[in-house]
Simulated assay, not measured.
Amino acid sequence: MNITVQAEFEIDSWDEVPYEEPEDGPKLTKVVIRKTYRGALEGTGVAEVLTAQGSAGAGYVASERINATLDGRQGTFVIQHGGLANGDDQSTFGTVVPNSGTAGLTGLSGRATEAAHGVLTLVYAFDS
C-alpha cells in the first residue's frame, strides 16, 4: 500500500558554480543544496544539482541523499528528481533510487517530487 506525505523543507545553503556560460544559449551550473525537512519527514538532505538556466526555459536534475525519520523509521535514502520550465509551463519528476534505503529505511521505494515550492511530495511503500 502506497502512502503519500508532504514534507516542508527549508534551504539552509545554496552553493552555485557556473561551469559553462555561452553567449548564446542557457547557462549551465552545478549547485549543492542543503535542506532541513520538517513534518512527515524529519531530517536533512544534501542535493547535487545540475541546471540549465535560459531566458525562457530552464531545467534541473538532482541526486539527493536524505537522512531522516519517516513513519517512525530512521535512516537514509537517495532520491533522483528533476524539473523543466517553459515559461509558465512547469513539470517535475522524481523517484526513490531502488535499494538506496539504509537502517530503518531499508526497503523504501516510491516517487518523490517538488511540485510546490518548499514541499517534497513522497509517495512511498516499504517492501514486506
Score class of each variant (00 low, 15 high):
73 R>Q: 10
2 N>D: 08
10 E>T: 15
70 L>K: 02
62 A>W: 01
9 F>V: 07
94 G>I: 00
125 A>L: 04
63 S>A: 12
13 S>W: 10
1 M>D: 11
37 Y>S: 03
108 L>G: 00
37 Y>V: 09
48 E>S: 09
114 E>R: 13
89 D>S: 13
78 V>K: 01
76 T>P: 07
51 T>G: 04
71 D>C: 02
76 T>S: 11
109 S>Q: 11
110 G>P: 00
22 P>E: 13
82 G>H: 01
49 V>R: 04
21 E>S: 15
49 V>P: 04
10 E>H: 10
123 V>Y: 03
58 A>Y: 05
62 A>E: 05
39 G>H: 09
87 G>F: 11
12 D>W: 08
9 F>Y: 12
88 D>N: 12
51 T>H: 00
66 I>Q: 06
76 T>H: 07
91 S>D: 04
10 E>F: 14
32 V>E: 09
68 A>C: 08
88 D>P: 13
91 S>V: 00
115 A>G: 13
127 D>H: 05
73 R>V: 01
117 H>C: 08
104 G>T: 01
101 G>I: 03
67 N>C: 13
97 V>T: 13
31 V>E: 01
70 L>Y: 11
113 T>F: 06
27 K>Q: 12
31 V>H: 01
90 Q>S: 13
111 R>C: 03
108 L>Q: 02
122 L>F: 05
57 G>T: 04
10 E>M: 13
109 S>H: 07
31 V>D: 05
41 L>C: 11
123 V>F: 02
7 A>L: 01
27 K>W: 03
86 N>L: 15
111 R>T: 12
68 A>K: 00
70 L>W: 07
18 P>W: 03
110 G>Q: 02
95 T>I: 14
3 I>S: 08
15 D>A: 14
114 E>C: 10
4 T>C: 07
95 T>F: 11
61 V>S: 11
6 Q>N: 11
27 K>Y: 02
41 L>A: 05
2 N>I: 06
55 S>V: 05
66 I>Y: 07
38 R>L: 08
28 L>E: 15
57 G>W: 05
67 N>E: 15
26 P>R: 13
118 G>N: 04
88 D>T: 15
83 G>N: 01
64 E>I: 11
67 N>D: 13
62 A>S: 15
78 V>E: 02
113 T>G: 07
124 Y>W: 06
67 N>S: 15
79 I>K: 00
84 L>P: 04
95 T>G: 14
32 V>K: 07
44 T>C: 10
1 M>F: 08
127 D>G: 10
65 R>V: 15
23 E>L: 13
120 L>I: 05
33 I>A: 14
19 Y>F: 14
104 G>S: 06
24 D>R: 15
95 T>K: 14
29 T>P: 12
50 L>F: 02
44 T>I: 10
32 V>H: 05
29 T>H: 05
87 G>W: 12
72 G>Q: 08
108 L>T: 00
78 V>Y: 00
76 T>R: 06
81 H>I: 03
118 G>P: 01
2 N>Y: 08
15 D>L: 12
